[in-house]
Amino acid sequence: MNNFTYTPTNSAKEATRLRRETPAATYVAGATTLLDMMKVNLVEYPQLIDINELPLRGIEQTREGLRIGAMERMSDVGEHPVVVQQYPAVSESLLLAASAQLRNMASIGGNLLQRTRCGYFRDGAFPCNKRVPGSGCPAQQGDHHGLAILGTSTACLAQTYPGDLSVALAALDAVITLENAKGKQRRVPVTSFYLLPGQTPDRENILEPGELIVAVTIPAAPHAQRSTYLKVRERTSYAYALASAAVGLEVQGGTIRSARVALGGVGTIPWRSPEAEKILTGAPATDDTFRVAAAAALRGAQPREHNGYKVALAQNTLVRALQKVATP
């Protein structure tokens, strides 16, 4: 780990000013992803700007929905009674992620910015287009059994976001509030926040230099209240998803009134599926409907030699998640 200077701040204005002063610096909150990567010299920063004491806390009901401050911790949000009762998919996605210790440390803002687990990205001895643009992608011909099958490119197969929370947030139409150095705020849907790799996998999201994540807002909806997050892993706990599904349904008299579907572990970014939602909406809440929807969600999949299993795995994960919320 390179040496660096450390500056604690207590205002967004001061934090963004420090970043403007030293553009190569970075913000630090929970530090779990950052130190993990700095220890193996995957990233180097001359300065860490501590934003933990910024007034970005609070889990509160607003007109737009539930507003969660970016400095709230995963554990606190995951167990918050309103999140548990009205946004179960969000609660479950948080509590099935990482470990109890890491959930006590990691912030919501930092969670959205966690980096890929692709082994080639994580090992500096390999070329990687995400880490060193233009250097190549060994995953194309190499070991890609855990990598994505949707939204991939010839330059990258990695899950830019390997986690769980953003999958649930993408399904439930959550919006991220950002603040730049001028104090100006903008709102971006989670579904527009991450960038597909294309030929520039080093560009991962729409954040401008120095811009801060200040909050996430999730609209209230019947399908949010009747939602779930199902995660399938190589071991029962404390692992990244091979495939996951965040789903929400509003069912009246056996008919689906509204549906929300997003997949994790199989897309390069959290994978909202309008195809599946279209089939579900207005259809009877039956296993047949769920199977057709799951097939539609994976229709665009481009599996490689070692990850063909993910097509069936993701379909079955999605069907099971839908079955769970269809039966109250």
Binding site: Y6, P8, V28, T32, L35, D50
Partner: peptide, 10 residues
């Protein structure tokens, strides 16, 4: 928490 992923100074 895990003490390996946080800084003493923090």
């Amino acid at each position: 928490i895990v003490s390996c992923l946080t800084l003493s100074v923090m």
